[in-house]
Design a binder for these strands. Structure first.
Length: 577
RNA sequence: GACUCAGUAGCUCAGCUGGCAGAGCAUCUCCCUUUUAAGGAGAGGGUCCAGGGUUCGAGCCCCUGCUGAGUCACCA
């Protein structure tokens, strides 16, 4: 029941108690009205540094450093927009006889991490820092755990940063408080989505929501999560894509719909895969994939420039990406020709298998023609496309929802956008021939029979919708997490998700006060003797060396005995409780 | 799934050939009325990830497990 508390946590609980005893509520309910954010104070003071005699300003935030200095001290207060220094002068904060607010509350009972409110006058210190001279101090919320202290010197070198990735991801709230960069990553993530949304809305496309719980997980080849609906007593799947539902909306008469969707895939996790991730999918009627390529590069250029101070260039690791439209375009066949020397045009399955063999690519019997081509591309080509590049015209077998190419029925009107060797977006001229679509689903069933556990299910209702008629449509999906990684210079998806999936922390079973045989034996002797030379006790216990060592340490850990070193040697005695 | 590395104070990390558990920051006490990685003097703080084993003796060596990171494999 009782939680183990560290020394510092106990001290903070003591301070909490003391505040209450002084009549100060450490968790007050009332609204605290700040007049400025920290950045406003910096900006406004710089503008008016000469004449302006500042009236009282009022700020609130978390106290991040304390430099206590006799009768005058400094603290940095951090709000959502940055930090500002506060000057606490004993006789200014406490003009009367009673100096308790300064001496006791500020200096003793407040800690780094506490939320406070300050009113005061803005001035510039001798060191040239814009500072608030505190005239009042309000405790807004007491922090009971010590934050990691991250210090920065004049050159911007960071000391004692909170860097352990496990702790950062498990305690993202702490990460956000102490690591400025982290907050910026997530702000950029939101700005990316806002810029995209704005781009679509300007064109009058409609943002929609479609089911996450689906009876048939469609629209992609992936292993789904399965769950169960109790009242309906039926299985439901968490969506792996929203494609089939958005197309139903095009059938229903919308000309442009899009959705920012959380998708879920029950697959492995690594630095580019999280079980839940965010995809933006958009479908526009009467368009084809050529139109969509233009649209995509235009949209990305808009997104990049609006989060990137107008520049199309983005630093990613040691590379410089340029999102200036138009992007390079190459067909998959040409890409393979370029990077392997093989022209796979017109090859059958056996010939493709031979190519794989020659290129040292492993194959198995479940792989059809499309999968083989995909393997060759993935293995030999994909990684080469660092700058944004559209790869077009994928084999028909691996694109069951995509129109056959108008010039060559072995391929489809599909493109993927590769950036930094990774697939970021995927788009089609959507298949709207219901009979063709039914056949493609049936081919997927054959693949499934061959052992491909990611082949698609047949969605009869989706086919019914197509039979009612869907206009020619182009659709595109883009991975928001991966795009964010690229635009924030992060190589791990965990850095762009607030709460990446983690295994649960091992909650250690509470250690019960239970003595083992050896500990009991020693304890019994001690209860009689109370105090004994260590060697005598060891002999009388009759324990082996190992058992003795473990037992005596065990007792000490439980606080039942203690070892005392004196001139005459080592003594063991019962610890009084 | 395989391999490599890591887990020690609130945080960042040392810890030699196996021999009493260390530093900086943070914390506590004292001094200091414009400091800023404030400073000075002193003090306290540990389930060395967990469980076994080897040993007179394990933070260190061996085995098993847990958690994380990286590389690879898998992967619309």
């Amino acid at each position: 029941m009782s939680q183990h508390l560290s020394e510092q946590e106990l001290q903070r609980r003591e301070a909490l108690k003391s505040l209450r005893e002084m009549g100060i509520d450490p968790y007050p309910a009332a609204e605290y009205k700040a007049s400025h954010f920290s950045k406003d104070i910096h900006a406004a003071y710089e503008d008016n540094s000469e004449a302006q005699e500042w009236k009282e300003v009022c700020i609130s935030g978390r106290m991040m450093t304390q430099r206590i200095n006799g009768k005058a001290s400094f603290a940095d207060v951090m709000d959502s927009h940055g930090r500002v220094q506060v000057y606490f002068n004993r006789d200014i904060l406490c003009p009367g006889e009673d100096k308790e607010l300064y001496n006791t509350v500020f200096k003793r009972l407040l800690d780094i991490g506490d939320f406070i409110g300050i009113t005061g006058r803005v001035f510039k210190t001798n060191m040239g820092e814009i500072t608030i001279e505190a005239h009042s101090l309000t405790v807004l919320s007491k922090s009971l755990r010590p934050l990691p202290i991250v210090k920065k010197d004049k050159e911007g070198n960071i000391y004692d940063a909170f860097t352990n990735p496990e702790q950062r991801y498990r305690m993202r709230y702490v990460d956000l408080v102490v690591n400025d960069k982290v907050k910026n990553t997530f702000i950029t993530r939101t700005r990316i989505m806002n810029a995209m949304r704005e781009f679509f809305n300007r064109k009058d496309y409609l943002e929609v929501e479609t089911p996450i719980l689906q009876p048939i997980p469609g629209g992609a080849a992936a292993r789904p999560f399965i769950t169960h609906h109790n009242a309906l007593d039926m299985p439901l799947y968490l969506r792996i894509a929203n494609e089939l539902y958005l197309k139903r909306l095009i059938v229903g008469g919308f000309e442009g719909v899009y959705e920012f969707a959380k998708d879920f895939r029950n697959e492995g996790m690594d630095r580019t895969h999280n079980p839940e991730f965010t995809v933006m999918e958009i479908y526009v009627a009467y368009k084809d994939y050529f139109w969509m390529m233009n649209f995509t590069e235009e949209m990305l250029e808009h997104v990049v420039t609006s989060v990137n101070k107008g520049s199309t260039e983005v630093k990613l690791g040691d590379k410089l990406l340029n999102f200036k439209a138009p992007f390079a375009r190459i067909t998959m066949v040409d890409a393979i020709k370029e990077h392997t020397g093989y022209d796979i045009t017109g090859m059958d399955e056996a010939a493709l298998r031979d190519v794989c063999k020659a290129l040292n690519i492993e194959t198995d019997d479940s792989m059809g023609k499309g999968k083989l081509i995909d393997e060759i591309f993935g293995e030999k080509c994909e990684g080469n496309y660092i700058q944004p590049t559209f790869i077009t015209d994928y084999p028909v077998e691996m694109s069951p929802l995509c129109k056959k190419h108008r010039d060559n029925p072995d391929f489809t009107e599909r493109f993927e956008l590769m950036i930094n060797g990774k697939e970021v977006a995927n788009a089609y001229s959507e298949l709207n021939d219901p009979i063709d679509q039914r056949e493609r689903f049936e081919e997927q069933l054959n693949l499934s029979a061959k052992g491909d556990d990611e082949a698609m299910f047949i969605d009869q209702d989706f086919l019914r919708a197509l039979e009612f008629g869907m206009p020619p449509t182009s659709g595109m999906g883009i991975g928001i997490d991966r795009l964010t990684m690229m635009l924030t210079d992060n190589s791990s998806i965990q850095e762009v998700l607030f709460f990446p999936q983690m295994k649960p922390e091992n909650k250690e079973s509470k250690k019960v006060l239970e003595l083992n045989e050896g500990e009991k034996a020693i304890f019994e002797i001690l209860k009689v003797e109370n105090r004994l030379a260590l060697d005598d006790l060891k002999t009388r216990s009759g324990l082996s060396n190992k058992a003795w060592d473990k037992s005596i340490k065990g007792l000490a850990k439980m606080g039942l005995s203690k070892v005392e070193k004196t001139e005459e040697g080592l003594f063991v005695e019962l610890a009084e409780d």
